[in-house]
Design a protein around this nucleic acid. Sequence first.
DNA 1: CACGCAATGTAGCATATGCTACGGATGAAG
DNA 2: CTTCATCCGTAGCATATGCTACATTGCGTG
Lengths: 147, 147
Amino acid sequence: MTKKTPKTTSKKSKERSEPHARTRAAHAQETAEDYVEAVFDTVQEKGECRVLDLARHFAVSHVTVSRIVGRLKQEGLLETAPYRPITLTAKGNRLAKRSKKRHQIVLEFLLSLGVDQKTAEIDSEGIEHHVSEATLAAMKRHLKTRH
Amino acid sequence: MTKKTPKTTSKKSKERSEPHARTRAAHAQETAEDYVEAVFDTVQEKGECRVLDLARHFAVSHVTVSRIVGRLKQEGLLETAPYRPITLTAKGNRLAKRSKKRHQIVLEFLLSLGVDQKTAEIDSEGIEHHVSEATLAAMKRHLKTRH
DNA sequence: CACGCAATGTAGCATATGCTACGGATGAAG
DNA sequence: CTTCATCCGTAGCATATGCTACATTGCGTG
């Protein structure tokens, strides 16, 4: 899942372009985090999580969800069987908790900046996947000193 | 370029899932912003911007750059001819300046939080595309009051 | 217990982004 | 003006994410 084999240009140019490279490489991981978070929340709220629950949550078709769920199952994050609910593996659960925590910190941080609730919720969704540990720590510090 | 024709599920479910829907819908725009910014900077630094400059900058192959440049040209953001340098249209220039300004604010904001330079540069790349006007304004406020 | 609707899966297509391999264009150097 | 390294375009493939249309499963109901 990591890479293939070759690589001609990029290794040498890492210095200059590491930020962008990282940004792009993270997309699959972002999807994984969004999905395990959603499964976690849905199970908490409704007792079980179905393909259609996720389809509604992400506003995509059930087909898209199905395929992604299949991939995440192969990655060991989810468990499911045909026509059965979706559950998190231990690994998926760990990722979900980590993601939710990070999400929560970003959300609270935006709120502490004075951003309105709705905007903060929207922006935190987009931002959470791009916040490094160092920046997250800085946000935590800010939350502590301002409270 | 906006959409095709159909749309069954998403319109109705916007209420619940607007944050996610927005996040996903923005990817093409993010690429556009990254590219016009890079063209702008490269022209400033080197006098002209070539496909290979962008390929090195983003650490992707020249093929990927070529295709994206073609798309952005069709969108009226860039101008170029085969084997010729890439330039920004007026529209592209406006977008570049807006993006750079936003980028700059996010970067300065992260630095003001105490995030180190290198991390701030990396994170601001990822974050800038997910920051709403409201949040950007909050960051500006923060920068003013803390300085 | 058969039936039908809702949920899910499958087939097949589109777009966006990656790549390698190969071939054509440009321009500098001889 | 030829030559050649470098740049760039095209062909063709892969993956990730979207979709519609159609097939199938499961389960509640009559």
